[in-house]
Structures are given as structure tokens and as C-alpha cells.
């Protein structure tokens, strides 16, 4: 097969994927507009997807905050700018690493679970059964997962921000003798309320990416158990790439990079 043919095939596959995702988003919005929401299922999903991810999010954020502080505190003290460490840790956590790392962790844990669960339902004809009963798989499966993630991911990000700052503060004190009052004062000067809101807005967008990609990969599963495996892997890989890409674009526009 020639290069042009391969390029053409890849382009068609990409456009099909894009069309599929857009169609899924459209159908989901229609369900939301018509208030076709299964509240009990949304609550269950919020618990499973959100609370279930809390520990792993807290641990990764704690170590991230600690390592940022470790790398920056001793250097900063040497150059006599130790009072800025709190600002640096908080600034990085709230605006960038908090939302993004939380999203990456949740994409790995939850995005894969969504794709695997829905993919298994496809190969065991449960999705066809729903359609046969006149029930929309989007309303039944996608909407509760989207809402659950859209609510829980920003909440998880708040916890991630806090634990990351606390971890950073502890390391700053332990290794560079920067006292917590100075750390907090620097943090308050560096980061405003609008930074927190923008960080949470990023989380919301990441939640939508994880939910739509996970659900779409699940719904488009083909080929039995191997297909479920492929869908799961693709859900994580595509979500993470999109999270990094959109994070750059959002940072550029939200935080005045332009």
C-alpha cells in the first residue's frame, strides 16, 4: 500500500472518529436538555468514579507537591528567595499540575474502567438489548458517567491542590526551614481566586474528555475480549494526549499566555 493510500485511510479513520465523538456529544447534550437524567445511577457513578479515585489522587498530588518543594526550596534559599517557595508550589499546583495530574490519574483509573465496562456490554449484546427495549445507551450509560465525572473531577482537583500545597509546605519547612506562615503568605500573594476557578474549569473540560472518550471507545468496541482490551488502552492513551493538548491551549488563553 502506498504512502498516499495509507495517509488517506488514516485521514478517513480520524474523520470517522471525530464524527462519532461529535455525534455522541450531540446526543448527550440532547439528553441533558430534555432532562433525561437517571439521578440514582449518576449518584452511584459519582461515588464509584469519584470517591474511589480519592486515595490515588491524594497520594500522587502529595508526592508531586513535595517534589516541587524539594527541587525549588533549597535552591531558592541559597539565592535568598526562600519566601517565594510557597508561591511557586501553589502557583504550579493550582494552575497546572493539580488539574492535569488529577485528570491523568482519573483517565487511567476511570476512563479505562468506563471503556471496559461499556465495551463488555457491547460484546455481550447488552447495548443492543437496551436499544431493542427502546432505551438510549447514551441516556442510560453516557449521561450518568459524564455528570459524575463533571462533578467529581473538579472536587478531586480541590483536594489535590490542598494536599499538594500541604506536602510542599511540609518539605519546605523540613529541608529548607521555610516557616509555614511565610509559605502561606507567599502562596496567597502568588495565586488569586480566579486562578483557582480557572484551574477547576480545566478540570471540568478534562472530565468531559475522559467521559466522552471512554464512552465512545466502549461503544465502538468490536471483536470480543481482544476488542475490549484495545478499547480500554485506546481510551487511556487518547484521553491523556487530549488532556495534555487541551491543557496547553487552555493555559495559553486562560492565563494570558497570548
Amino acid at each position: 500500500m502506498g504512502i498516499l493510500e495509507r495517509f488517506g485511510e488514516k485521514t478517513i479513520a480520524f474523520l470517522e472518529y471525530l464524527g462519532g465523538i461529535i455525534s455522541l456529544i450531540g446526543e448527550t447534550i440532547r439528553s441533558l436538555v430534555h432532562a433525561q437524567i437517571r439521578y440514582a445511577e449518576t449518584f452511584v457513578q459519582s461515588y464509584e468514579l469519584g470517591i474511589g479515585s480519592l486515595l490515588i489522587v491524594l497520594l500522587t498530588s502529595l508526592f508531586t507537591g513535595m517534589v516541587i518543594s524539594l527541587e525549588s526550596a533549597q535552591q531558592a534559599v541559597q539565592y535568598g528567595i526562600g519566601s517565594l517557595v510557597g508561591g511557586a508550589v501553589t502557583y504550579t499546583s493550582v494552575r497546572e499540575l493539580g488539574p492535569m495530574l488529577t485528570a491523568v490519574v482519573v483517565a487511567g483509573r476511570v476512563g479505562s474502567a468506563i471503556a471496559a465496562e461499556i465495551g463488555s456490554m457491547v460484546v455481550t449484546e447488552q447495548i443492543d438489548a437496551l436499544r431493542s427495549m427502546g432505551l438510549s445507551p447514551v441516556r442510560f450509560l453516557v449521561v450518568p458517567r459524564l455528570l459524575a465525572l463533571a462533578i467529581m473531577l473538579p472536587l478531586l482537583t480541590i483536594f489535590a491542590d490542598i494536599i499538594s500545597i500541604v506536602g510542599g509546605m511540609w518539605i519546605a519547612q523540613a529541608y529548607a526551614h521555610i516557616n509555614p506562615a511565610s509559605f502561606i503568605s507567599s502562596a496567597r500573594q502568588a495565586v488569586g481566586f480566579d486562578d483557582v476557578v480557572k484551574g477547576l474549569f480545566k478540570s471540568f473540560i478534562f472530565a468531559c474528555i475522559i467521559a466522552f472518550v471512554g464512552c465512545y471507545q466502549g461503544l465502538s468496541t468490536r471483536g470480543g475480549a481482544a476488542g475490549v482490551g484495545r478499547a480500554t488502552t485506546s481510551a487511556v492513551v487518547i484521553s491523556i494526549i487530549l488532556i495534555f493538548g487541551t491543557n496547553f491551549i487552555m493555559s495559553y488563553f486562560l492565563f494570558g499566555g497570548h
Binding site: T124, E125, Q126, A129, L130, S132, M133, G134
Partner: peptide, 27 residues
């Protein structure tokens, strides 16, 4: 129109997460 027809699948295709009663009562 699907309210007039019903398909009994080869492997039943019951939803794993629901009990038999919930599955049957779902429609």
C-alpha cells in the same frame, strides 16, 4: 415502533449490574 416488537437474545443479554427482577422490569 420497537414497543411492538421484542428480541430475546441468544445469550439473554441481561444487564450484569441489575438483578433479574430489575432486568425484566426495566422496559
Amino acid at each position: 415502533l420497537r414497543q411492538k416488537t421484542s428480541l430475546a437474545f441468544q445469550f439473554a443479554a441481561l444487564l450484569d449490574s441489575l438483578t433479574i427482577g430489575e432486568n425484566v422490569g426495566l422496559p
